[in-house]
Write a protein that binds this DNA or RNA. Structure first.
Length: 689
DNA sequence: TAATGGGGGTTTTTT
DNA sequence: ACCCCCATTA
């Protein structure tokens, strides 16, 4: 009946056609879990499940799209639903946070939320923490070091997502702050109050409120009853709060499918715990487990490296990967370079060499542990005119001017958004934190206002706020306020454009390089074309910021072929023919930030494992011996590194090891065979002394 | 009294 | 590139 089932192996077919209760799929890297999950959705739809009664939770919205596209392809191959598989588009898919957001908008009234509530991204949330902290003068109460806003938010968020107390979390992540934990608790309390008063929700609130919606006596059964099937990808990266939501959603109807691989759990900093996939049966008794362990992605040589790394894990990885095809690929290559410049050079050489072999740049990726690790390489790529797109690290939405316009979007739907006011008012000439704060006070927002205030009431107080502002900036302020007010019958996009016009002159006056920034604002206005309300636009950008700098405003240089530069985390779930992994030294991989605990080290090992298993045909690992302390600085201060502890003798035996020495007029590359390891060490002694 | 500009120190990973 | 602190300026 379904020809496309023939493309699946027996285990994948069982996943696709499992009929009944809870199902757990343990799927090692490259074993076709996306295929199996897409096929399962296709099978559900083809056997009569209405698409809108299927919920597909993924790690990124992009993953959901990718999977549903494949589902659509399968369905159209099967000649189902008019042949175009359009039904797949009606499946509800996205991240936990995005689905939570959609649910909250839909049921805002029932949940007692202001209709135009704001969604704070982590940077916004940290800013609110800072407002709270300054108002409470918490920093002055102590002479000792006090946690910064980002750390405070992290402590708060971990407590929420793990269900632990603030003091327990503080002892874990910042033991040096134990003596101020009382103040941290006070700040968290005040933070929660402040958010409520301004109808502002942070990422954790989205999950918390979704959970209470699902647990609600009236709403809960309605939400659960609207779904026949729930499917969750990357289940090793869910946290306790997310499991709570799933448990509540599926308590009386265990049709849930989860897919994951505990060997690829790399999000413990977000309170994810791999025990959730391991203990799945405790939450859903009687769950069936299917294991996918045939790797269709990589050559056996590459899997040998990954397996050797996995074998040294403290608890060992549950799965040993075997290649479906007998690999004829090249040996994985371990290149030892003098320093990061040498590394950048060598990477570029290798990239071009692979391209000579016919592997497009698009089929190659450079992976780094931390976004800034690729800085030097990016200079070299630029110098050699190798086009690339960088994923991870700094984001478009973190640019100040983007946040300014998004703040205006939020404010137009929610005048109580204190943080948005705080941003916008400071764009005015002569208005800094103090005056902005006073003006906000005049609006009746901020300090001491326990409840949420009606929007009309806020606007009634606006003239009072204007009086606080410097005379010179009042006309600008009035223009801004006028743009914020909705014009009856006006479309969302038109209002977005009006707001942009009102903000533009302020952007021009505030930033030294306005031209490029104004272009970005156009892109934001364009993004509002399909939106129902402006606070949705702001929320969407917060929940899923464009992943690369060129995503939104397409870079004109890049037309056909380009290289991917990405953090390992952002590369999860993806694959390329050729992978280059940079800075495989102790302190980088594993990151020295993570070395405080055994668990931290084990997670770093999994990060390395994830990086290795992205490769289909060729794997290049680079080890620079010297690094600059301050790559941006002018001085030449540097340190020496050890190769990563993950490159043990057993692991190194799976590589061809090469020493890259700089020389005048190009690179002299000295290749050394496997039995030349002794010579390598003596060579290196000479090189590094 | 506050805003603004300059200088120095720091930077994991992300929904 | 950002954050914090300090000096200068309105």
């Amino acid at each position: 009946m379904f020809d496309w089932m023939d493309q699946l192996n027996a285990a994948q077919r069982e996943v696709a056609t499992h009929d009944g209760g809870a199902l757990r799929v343990l799927a090692g890297a490259g074993t076709g879990k996306t295929t199996a999950l897409s096929a399962r959705v296709a099978w559900l739809l083809a056997t009569g499940t209405p698409p809108e009664r299927v919920l597909l939770l993924t790690f990124t919205r992009r993953a959901a799209r990718q999977m549903l596209t494949r589902t659509a392809n399968l369905l159209s191959t099967a000649g189902y639903a008019g042949g175009d598989g359009r039904a797949a588009n009606r499946v509800m898919g996205g991240t936990f946070h995005a689905v939570a957001h959609r649910t909250l908008r839909r049921y805002s009234q029932a949940l007692g939320l202001a209709e135009g509530f704001s969604v704070l991204d982590p940077a916004d949330a940290a800013d609110v923490i800072d407002m709270v902290r300054e108002d409470g003068c918490y920093t002055q109460m102590t002479a000792s070091r006090f946690p910064r806003k980002a750390l405070l938010l992290d402590i708060y968020s971990r407590a929420i997502n793990t269900g632990k107390t603030i003091s327990a979390v503080t002892s874990e992540v910042a033991p040096w702050a134990n003596d101020v934990v009382g103040q941290i608790v006070e700040i968290c309390r005040a933070y929660v109050k402040r958010k409520r008063a301004g109808a502002m929700l942070d990422f954790d609130d989205l999950l918390l409120l979704w959970r209470s919606a699902v647990l609600d006596d009236h709403l809960g059964p309605r939400l659960a009853g609207a779904l026949d099937h729930v499917l969750v990808d990357e289940y090793q990266d869910v946290n306790g709060l997310q499991v709570d939501v799933l448990r509540a959603l599926r308590e009386n109807d265990p049709r849930i499918t989860v897919v994951g691989d505990d060997a690829q759990a790399v999000y413990s900093f977000r309170a994810a715990e791999p025990r959730h996939i391991l203990d799945f049966e405790q939450v859903f008794p009687g769950a069936r487990t299917i294991v996918l362990d045939v790797n269709y992605r990589s050559s056996q040589q590459i899997l040998d490296v990954a397996n050797a790394v996995g074998a040294e894990a403290k608890e060992g990885f549950s799965s040993v990967l075997t290649a479906a095809r007998r690999g004829t690929g090249p040996s994985p290559r371990l290149a030892r370079c003098v320093d990061e410049d040498g590394q950048a050079n060598e990477v570029c050489d290798r990239i071009l060499a692979h391209r000579e072999e016919g592997i497009l740049l698009k089929e190659q990726a450079v992976l780094v542990r931390a976004a800034h690790h690729s800085n030097l390489l990016e200079l070299e790529l630029g110098a050699r005119r190798i086009p690339y797109v960088k994923y991870g690290g700094l984001r478009f939405t973190e640019a100040a001017h983007v946040k300014d316009l998004l703040a205006a979007f939020r404010l137009s739907d929610n005048v109580c958004d204190e943080l948005a006011w705080f941003r916008l008012l400071q764009l005015l000439e002569g208005v800094g934190p103090m005056i902005a704060r006073r003006a906000i006070g005049a609006l009746g927002l901020g300090n001491g206002q326990p409840g949420y205030t009606e929007q009309a009431e806020i606007w009634r107080r606006w003239p009072g706020a204007v009086e606080v502002l410097p005379v010179a900036s009042r006309s600008h302020a009035e223009r801004m306020a006028a743009a914020l007010a909705a014009v009856p019958g006006e479309g969302v996009c038109a209002q977005a454009d009006r707001l942009r016009s009102a903000i533009s002159p302020l952007i021009e006056a505030t930033y030294p390089d306005p031209a490029a920034r104004l272009v970005d604002l156009d892109a934001l206005v364009a993004a509002s074309a399909k939106a129902v309300r402006l606070s949705d636009v702001a929320a969407d950008f917060a929940l899923e910021p464009p992943r690369s700098t060129s995503d939104l405003a397409g870079t004109p240089m890049i037309d056909e072929d380009w290289l991917t530069v990405s953090t390992v985390h952002s590369a999860k779930g993806l694959e390329w023919d050729v992978i280059h992994i940079l800075n495989v030294t102790d302190g980088m991989i594993p990151s020295d930030m993570a070395l405080g605990s055994d668990d931290g080290l084990e997670e770093e090992r999994r990060v390395f494992y994830v990086a290795l298993t992205r490769a289909r045909r060729a794997l290049n690992v680079y080890v620079p011996s010297r690094y600059h302390h301050r790559p941006r600085g002018r001085d030449d201060s540097h340190g020496w590194t050890q190769p990563s502890r993950f490159l043990s003798d057993n692991v190194r035996a799976t590589f061809d090891e090469v020493i890259v020495t700089p020389s005048i007029g190009g690179q002299v590359v000295q290749a050394v065979g496997l039995n030349g390891l002794d010579r390598i060490s003596s060579d290196l002694e000479a090189l590094w002394l």
